[in-house]
Amino acid sequence: MTQDTVTVRPLRAADEESWRKLWTGYLTFYESSVSEEVYQTTFGRLLDGDDHEFHALVAESDGELIGLVHYLFHRHCWRVENVCYLQDLFAAPEARGKGVGRALIEAVYAKADEAGSPNVYWLTQDFNHTARQLYDRIGTLTPFIKYQRA
């Protein structure tokens, strides 16, 4: 597989089984899991997204899903335009290092441009060294540290 054979397209209802396998891989990487209700609700939201809801793109090669990205647009107090949050990005282990992650991020960049959103941002964990090598090439590391409710 090369980057030339990767097609990025919107998620479809028929992709549920393959999407579920990829998203499970993503959750497992981050030592997390979700209930069946969250799987079903999230998949439904991804299919029904509007301009302020969730969206999903998938990477496909030879008819098989090999990657996914979830993103959403939201308002921002420092801008008039919405910003784009890239929430989840995952490439199947056998597809890593072959341009899948870059293709998915660039596809989100294109969707943000289409929507007039000047900013795309995402989070990753400090230990995600392999992915950060890509992120350092196509994004800018910011000094922000994430906190959440305890």
Rank of each mutant, 00 (worst) to 15 (best):
T142K: 03
V80E: 13
R75M: 06
N82C: 08
Y121M: 04
S32A: 03
R75A: 13
R132N: 09
F54W: 14
Q133T: 15
E37S: 12
Y121G: 04
V6G: 07
D15L: 06
E16Q: 15
L134I: 03
L141N: 01
G44P: 03
V83M: 05
K21R: 13
T28M: 04
H76Q: 05
I138T: 11
S32T: 00
V58W: 04
E106R: 13
M1Q: 08
V120I: 05
F43S: 11
L72V: 08
H70F: 12
L65M: 12
E94L: 14
D136V: 03
D136Y: 01
F144K: 10
A131H: 04
Y85N: 08
V83A: 02
E81K: 08
K111N: 04
T142F: 00
G63I: 06
G101V: 02
A56M: 07
Q125Y: 07
S35A: 14
T140I: 09
Y39I: 05
T24D: 12
K21Q: 13
K111Q: 14
Y26Q: 04
R20C: 09
D126Y: 13
R45M: 09
T130R: 13
A115P: 10
T28I: 03
L89I: 00
I145K: 10
R20Y: 06
W78R: 00
H129T: 15
R137M: 10
C84V: 05
Y85F: 15
T2V: 08
S33K: 02
E17T: 09
T124I: 01
Q40R: 07
R9E: 10
H52D: 03
N119I: 14
G139W: 02
S117F: 07
F54M: 11
L134G: 03
E60G: 09
H129M: 13
N128T: 10
L72R: 12
S117K: 04
P93C: 10
A150M: 10
V6A: 06
S117R: 04
L22E: 11
E53C: 05
H74N: 13
F43C: 09
F29Y: 15
T42H: 06
N128G: 09
V6E: 06
T28L: 04
G139Y: 02
W78A: 03
V80G: 12
T7I: 09
C84I: 03
P10T: 13
E37M: 04
L47D: 11
Q148S: 08
E94V: 15
W122Q: 04
T124L: 01
A92Q: 13
V6Q: 02
L57C: 10
T124P: 00
S33A: 06
G116H: 10
L141I: 01
Y109N: 14
D50P: 00
W122V: 06
T28W: 00
V8I: 11
P143W: 01
F29E: 05
Y30K: 01
S18G: 14
L46H: 09
T24Y: 07
T130F: 06
L27I: 02
G49A: 02
